[in-house]
Computed example of a mutant assay.
Amino acid sequence: MSDTTTCAPPPIGRSLWQDARIRLLRNRAAVASLVALALMMLACLVGPLLTGHSYDRVYQDYVRVPGSLSAYPKAEALPGAVQRIATRIRATPSEIVAQADRVRLVLTAQRPIDQRLLVYFDRSDQFGTPVITANEQEGRRLSLEVPIERQYFLFGTDSNGRDLLTRTLIAGRVSLAIGLLATGVALIIGVAYGATAGYLGGRIDMVMMRIVDVLYSLPFIFFVILLVVFFGRNFILMFLAVGAIEWLDMARIVRGQALSIRRQDYVLAAEALGVSTGGILRRHVIPNTLGPVVVYVTLLVPKVILLESFLSFLGLGVQEPMTSWGVLISDGARAIQATPWMLIFPASFLVTTLFALNFLGDGLRDALDPRDR
Rank of each mutant, 00 (worst) to 15 (best):
G363H: 09
N358C: 11
D122Q: 12
P287L: 14
L268D: 07
L311M: 10
R150N: 05
R102M: 02
T133I: 11
I280E: 02
R365E: 06
L118D: 01
F345K: 07
Y216W: 10
V293L: 11
A100S: 13
E308V: 04
P130Q: 01
P112A: 03
L24P: 05
P66T: 13
T183Q: 09
L144D: 02
L50G: 03
E149S: 10
A20V: 02
G198S: 07
D125F: 11
L227M: 13
L142H: 08
R233V: 11
A100E: 15
H284Q: 12
L226C: 07
I236A: 09
D3S: 13
E76Y: 08
N135D: 13
G201Y: 09
T51I: 14
I305F: 08
Q60C: 06
A335V: 10
A182G: 14
E271R: 15
T183W: 08
I236D: 00
R255Y: 05
I225P: 08
E136A: 15
L240T: 01
E145A: 13
A335F: 11
T352G: 10
F127P: 06
A43N: 11
V185C: 11
L307W: 01
L357F: 15
N160C: 06
I12A: 13
L300G: 11
G184R: 03
L311S: 03
D249Y: 09
D3L: 15
P340R: 06
I336E: 01
F153N: 11
L181E: 08
E149F: 00
G243W: 05
G190T: 03
G317R: 10
L354T: 09
W17T: 14
I113K: 00
V63I: 15
L357D: 00
G67V: 09
G291W: 02
T196F: 13
I236G: 00
D114V: 07
R233K: 15
L117T: 02
E149C: 08
R173G: 04
F239K: 10
F239T: 05
V207H: 00
R26A: 14
G161K: 09
L187R: 00
G139L: 08
I189S: 04
T92K: 14
L300N: 14
T196Y: 07
D362Q: 12
G128E: 07
L78N: 02
V318H: 11
V207G: 06
L34P: 05
F345S: 07
G232W: 07
S143R: 12
F235I: 06
R162H: 10
M209F: 04
R21I: 07
I329A: 12
Q110M: 01
L227R: 03
W325I: 04
T196H: 01
F155T: 05
T323N: 05
M206P: 00
G243A: 04
R104I: 03
R26K: 14
G274R: 01
W325Y: 09
A98K: 01
I22Y: 15
D369Y: 02
F239I: 04
F355T: 14
E308L: 07
L316M: 14
L364N: 07
Q110E: 10
S348C: 09
K303A: 15
Y62F: 15
S54F: 01
F127D: 06
G363N: 12
P219R: 13
D265E: 15
